[in-house]
């Protein structure tokens, strides 16, 4: 593998977004790019990430390879890169190590690091194609604020999407709270718009602890999309220029 990324900051943000959810995971490298799928220890949340091969220049791969990485170790090495550095990932066919090269834009500094890889026997889940009943896109900073605010009052949040809007509500020992968003279109700054596409009303309850965790991906994209259907896991997606980070969260069941 040899994959060169114009901005090391992209990988730094991706790893920052997922390192508190999963510790060890495989980076699966194939023709479509570098992908990752991993569940948290409780098997309640799943992260699915893709950095498309088009996002690298060049992207060269002789045969598919799984890079078993400890994300804490990778974070330590990525801290040694500036966000604007050019990052090159290199690995042999049956690699024991992953090589990371950081070059500054002026081309007068080259840093070379290697991290040890590990064999990870990772469970892969098949995620069915789903036509969601509701898709809500909103500023990622707003979603983060709602999750943090409501998490002060409660462990869980009810998300209800209807024609009127989307309502996040919670109740706990000290009281209760809710935030309702209505659809609006910001012509000058589309990334600040809230869009609600609905085929039928949805009401689901989720653990806020995980949602707060997902919001660490807010640095990746100014927009987040929540996709919901009754009785299926929530999809929280942060799209990047050439790739995505998606989180799935199992709903709470029964009252």
């Amino acid at each position: 593998l040899e994959a060169r990324l114009e901005q090391a900051g992209v990988l730094k943000k991706v790893v920052d977004a997922i390192k508190d959810l999963v510790q060890d995971c495989n980076f699966d490298c194939n023709d479509s790019g570098i992908a990752l799928q991993a569940m948290d220890n409780s098997h309640v949340a799943l992260v699915s990430m893709l950095l498309k091969s088009e996002g690298f220049s060049p992207y060269r791969l002789d045969r598919n390879v799984a890079l078993g990485v400890n994300l804490t170790s990778l974070t330590k090495v990525l801290r040694c890169a500036q966000n604007e550095d050019i990052l090159t990932l290199k690995a042999e066919d049956a690699p024991d190590t992953l090589s990371l090269v950081f070059e500054n834009a002026e081309n007068d500094r080259i840093s070379e690091y290697e991290i040890k890889l590990m064999d990870i026997d990772q469970e892969h889940l098949g995620i069915p194609e789903t036509e969601y009943a509701a898709a809500i896109s909103m500023p990622s900073a707003e979603f983060q604020r709602i999750c943090r605010d409501l998490n002060q009052l409660s462990e869980s949040v009810a998300i209800e999407a209807s024609k009127e809007g989307v309502k996040f509500s919670c109740s706990g020992d000290i009281g209760s709270g809710s935030v309702t968003l209505r659809q609006h279109n910001n012509v000058d700054r589309p990334e600040l718009s809230t869009k609600i596409e609905l085929t039928e009303p949805v009401a689901l309850t989720f653990s806020l602890k995980y949602l707060v965790n997902f919001c660490k991906a807010s640095a990746l994209s100014s927009v987040v999309t929540l996709s919901l259907s009754n009785e299926v896991p929530l999809l929280v997606e942060y799209a990047m220029g050439s790739g995505f980070v998606r989180f799935y969260l199992a709903p709470k069941i029964g009252e």
Partner: peptide, 14 residues
């Protein structure tokens, strides 16, 4: 209070 089910309830193993 509601129970937290795991993702295995929804997603099959590949």
């Amino acid at each position: 209070p509601a129970d937290q089910g795991s993702l295995h309830r929804y997603f099959g193993q590949r």
